[in-house]
Every structure is written in C-alpha cells, then in structure tokens.
C-alpha cells in the first residue's frame, strides 16, 4: 500500500477577504515526483507554505511525513520561490548554518558541504561571500541549502527560474538523482515541458482549488489527443486550408518548421476518421496523432495559456 508523504484534508486559507486556498484535499505519495502547476495567484505557494508550516491553515489538517508539519521540519528540504541568502556570509558558513538548523551534527559537516559544492561545480566558491556569487551560483547554493540535510521530502518552488540552460540541466539531473534515491519531491513550476519531463504526478491548482491530481499516465489516458499533424507531399501551406475544410476539423494551422498542417479535431469526432480523410484528400508524407501535452491539458482545464516562467509570480 502506498503511503502519503503529504496529506492535506479540507485545507482553507484566507488573507482578509481573499480565499487563497479553498478546501484542498491532497495526497502526495511517498517517493513520487509531483509537479504543482497553476496560473499566477492560484494558491500554489500558499499551499506549499502550509506544507512547510510557515503559515497555518484556517481550516483543515496538514500532515507531513506522518506527523504534524512543525515536527517534520527537519525532514523537509525547501527551496522557496523568492531566493534569499545572507549576503555577507561565506558560502561554506551559510551552508553549515542551514545544516545545523536542520539538525545535522557538526562532525562531518565540512565534508558534506564540500561534497555538495563539488556536485554543483562550485568548489572555487566555498570561501567567497554569498554576495560575490553570480545569480546562478547563488541559486545553486540555495539548492544545496535545501537538500544538504538529506531530507525525505523536498519542496522546490520554481527551481529553474533564472538558471541558464547548462545549470538548469545540472539541477534537473540532481532532482532526478534525488528522486531515484527514493526522495519524495514536490516542485512548482510554470514551465510545462519541465514538469512533463520530470514529474510522474501533476497537481493543477486554480483559484485556490485543486482541479487536477493524477499521474502522467492517467493524464495521457484521460486527455485523449485532439491534434492531427499532416505533412503534405507538396509542402504547400495552401494545403492547410483544404485540410481545414475536412469534416470534424475545427481549426487548421500551418507549421512552417515542420512543413505540416496541425488540425484541431472536434471533441465528438474520432481522430482516425480525420486521418483517413486527409490521406484520401491529398498525397501525404506523414500523418500523426499528436500526444497530449501538459500545455493542452492546462488550456483545457484553466481555459487560458500558461504564462511563461519570466512572468511568474506568487502562486
């Protein structure tokens, strides 16, 4: 039987008249890598802060790692969305300070800090003050601070924001390693393809309510594909309008990069019928039923496109 690392029951949080979280029930399975997605102001960060017991729910219960959130603090690693370091503290000193707060004994702390700095390729920065580091380096130090005590549950709020592709790949790999080592990971993101690549489970929050909570397999099964991609042999963009006139096609759009038309299929139409009709209409090189993306799911459930990570704010 799968146990829950995080268990929320009918949790409500209000700030004045604003209902930031509205009766959320949530189970994050042990060992899962769960993505929290949702538009700005949806209630993601508030939910995370309640899991971290930084703020407390007005109603409902929060259980983390089988205990109440406060007593589980030492077993949780947290990278907040708004990054913060003691600017004048030296890197090693800061990491040791955070590790001590999280209950690690002094013995062996230096070796642990050095090992982590090596993993993120920042050994040269160990003696530097935090304010001397670049933004990306600071972010990596904060990532270490959130995992140095080897927590059972790791919560990462927008871990990739502000990172260059090389460092983003490095953090991505570290998250996978931690997941492979059996850690439960929750991460909130605005970047759909990252969530899609990394997560085995997705929780979508909108207007303080959970509107989706499923594994990626379940999502792919539940949200059947509605886009057919047709590459005509002619590679002629004008073919898009001919394909758009097929029965059951709601919209047709030419994708110049793929030299293909993307057909959006009406909900009550079988995509196989449209594919057969396209082959019958014109000579084609490829016809493909495109897999549902998280973006598609998001648009379908929230009704609008996901903002880019640069536009992200408090969730």
């Amino acid at each position: 039987m799968t146990t829950s690392a995080v268990n929320l029951r009918a949790v409500w949080k209000r700030f004045g008249k604003t209902e930031a979280v509205r009766g959320i029930d949530l189970d994050v399975p042990d060992g899962s890598l769960t993505g929290f997605i949702g538009p700005n102001g949806a209630g993601k960060s508030t939910t995370i802060r309640m899991i971290m017991s930084i703020i407390h729910p007005d109603e409902g219960s929060v259980q983390v790692l089988g205990a109440d959130a406060i007593s589980a603090k030492d077993r949780i690693g947290y990278l907040p969305e708004e990054r913060g370091l003691y600017r004048r503290m030296r890197v090693t000193e800061f990491l040791k300070f955070m590790a001590t707060l999280k209950g690690l004994p002094g013995a062996g702390l230096d070796a642990r800090v050095n090992a982590w700095l090596e993993r993120v390729q920042l050994t040269d920065a160990s003696k530097k003050r935090c304010q001397e580091l670049s933004k990306g380096q600071q972010q990596k130090i904060q990532f270490i601070a959130s995992v140095i005590h080897d927590p059972e549950l790791i919560i990462l709020d927008e871990p990739f924001s502000g990172l260059d592709p090389v460092n983003a790949r490095l953090i991505n790999r570290l998250i996978r390693d931690l997941h492979d080592a059996g850690r439960t990971i929750i991460f909130s993101t605005h970047v759909m393809h990252q969530a899609e690549q990394l997560c085995d489970r997705i929780v979508l929050i909108n207007h303080g309510e959970k509107i989706l909570d499923a594994s990626m397999t379940e999502i792919h099964a539940r949200f059947d594909p509605r886009t057919v991609q047709v590459e005509p042999s002619s590679h002629n963009p004008a073919d898009a309008s001919r394909l758009g006139a097929l029965p059951g096609v709601e919209r047709a759009q030419w994708n110049p990069e793929r030299h293909a038309a993307e057909l959006t299929i009406a909900r009550d139409v079988d995509p196989q019928d449209v594919m057969r009709a396209a082959i019958a209409l014109m000579p084609v090189r490829t016809v493909e039923l495109r897999k549902t993306t998280l973006d598609d799911v998001f648009v379908e459930l929230v009704g609008e496109a996901m903002p880019s990570s640069e536009e992200s704010g408090n969730g």
């Binding site: 603090k73 907040p80 708004e82 913060g84 370091l85 003691y86 600017r87 904060q142």
Partner: peptide, 17 residues
C-alpha cells in the same frame, strides 16, 4: 529588515518557527 529584503527570511522560516 535586511533578512526580509534579501528574502532570506523564508529560507529561515523553513527551518525554524
């Protein structure tokens, strides 16, 4: 004030009450 401004406050509050 510095801890609030530099956003280190939330990092601290993840470890202590």
């Amino acid at each position: 004030i510095e801890e609030k401004a530099s956003k280190v406050m939330e990092v601290l509050l993840s470890a202590v009450s």
